[in-house]
Amino acid sequence: MNPPRTPPRIVHVGGSAPYDIHIGHGLLDDGAALAAHVRGRHVLLLSDTNVAPLYAERVAAALQAARPELKIGRFVLPAGEASKTLAGFGEAITALAELGATRDACVFALGGGVVGDLAGFAAACWMRGVDCVQLPTTLLSMVDSSVGGKTAVDLPQGKNLVGAFHLPRAVFADTGALTSLPLRELRAGLAEVIKYGAIRDPLFMEWLGAEREALLAGDAHALATAIARSCEHKAEIVERDPLEKGERALLNLGHTFGHAIETEQGYGAPGSDNLNHGEAVAVGMVLAARLSTQLGLAPASDAEALQALLARYGLPTQIPVGLAPEALLARMRLDKKNIAGRLRLVLWRGIGQAMVVPDVDEAQVLQVLAGTP
């Protein structure tokens, strides 16, 4: 039974190109609201093989009903991180060309983080930039990748190494889409939600501890609250630092470690037991917290509390077996935050007090990766 329709929550993102994040149930069917962000008559609906069968027809029908003159093309990627490549980007660009998309076209990114990143990058590059509307369908993409305009594709050498900043015209987070989300993917999104408490909001961390059962059960009100609070945190940060010159780097707590794990495992190939992005970030946050303790920046009790909360949510907290510390360190050296070949990591002084630490000693990082004090 669907929850009663209520007005969506709206989180405003300010800055040079302001936009709104709409959070609520049934937004994918609101053709008038979606079509309001289409300036021309060309729309490319970009999705993947998991999401398109569930929602693509609904979104296309809603847009067409609101704007019958729209010419709507579709491009569907194979689901999974392995599709977020230069080859996939090239296919998306070809789809825009075949649609005859003009400079007032709009790309709708219907799916999770992979779809959002690739669709946003294609929109950033087609004719030097066309509009993009993000329609995130996973919790992880609702609270992280759909907000802030980071777009990219992966290389074999590392995640998100080719990309651009390209702000969306709007974000519509339809919480109804979360009912079709597997529990593992829901947990992965909750890792990114927990991150916001870890970097700047101890009270939110306490709330997440208290609301664990409701969130894991998919309670609509609890999820909407978690999404809105997470988006509020991200909006406040990206408004002040849209191009990640300073404070925005704090949003990457655990990501340098996590990206290294993802890359070394081969980006979660379909059918494998490799960690997905949220799971890798969960492990990465634990490693960042342990390193902070080892460097004398934060109490061990806070690292233990973070690890315990992640474990209560069913998330991994240890590096997968078979990954060599030296290989992970080599991956971390390619992180975009590094300067002059020196590691620059997001660590913390304790829960709610994230910080960027330059010139981190690689020997200390290696000890944490090896699990040695």
Results as ranks from 00 to 15, higher is better:
M1G: 13
R5H: 13
H22F: 09
H25W: 15
A32C: 03
V38S: 07
H42C: 06
A65D: 14
R67Q: 11
R74F: 05
V76E: 05
A79G: 00
E81M: 09
A95W: 03
L96F: 12
G100V: 12
C106V: 15
C106I: 11
L110S: 07
G111A: 08
G112K: 08
G113H: 09
G116Y: 05
L118Y: 09
A119I: 05
M127I: 15
T138A: 13
G149R: 05
K150T: 04
G158M: 00
F165R: 01
H166T: 04
L167K: 10
P168A: 05
R169P: 07
F172M: 00
D174V: 04
T175S: 15
P182S: 07
L183G: 08
L186N: 00
L190A: 03
L190Q: 04
K195S: 02
I199L: 15
P202H: 07
E211P: 03
E211D: 15
A217H: 08
L223N: 01
A226P: 03
S230W: 01
E232V: 02
V238K: 00
P242Y: 06
P242C: 07
L250F: 01
L250D: 02
T256H: 10
A260N: 13
H277P: 09
E279A: 05
S292G: 13
A300T: 13
Q307D: 06
G314W: 06
G314N: 08
G322Y: 02
P325N: 06
A327Q: 11
L328E: 01
A330M: 10
N338D: 14
N338G: 11
L343H: 02
V346M: 07
W348F: 14
R349S: 13
G350C: 11
I351G: 00
G352A: 11
M355N: 01
D359W: 06
D361G: 14
V368A: 13
A370N: 03
G371P: 09
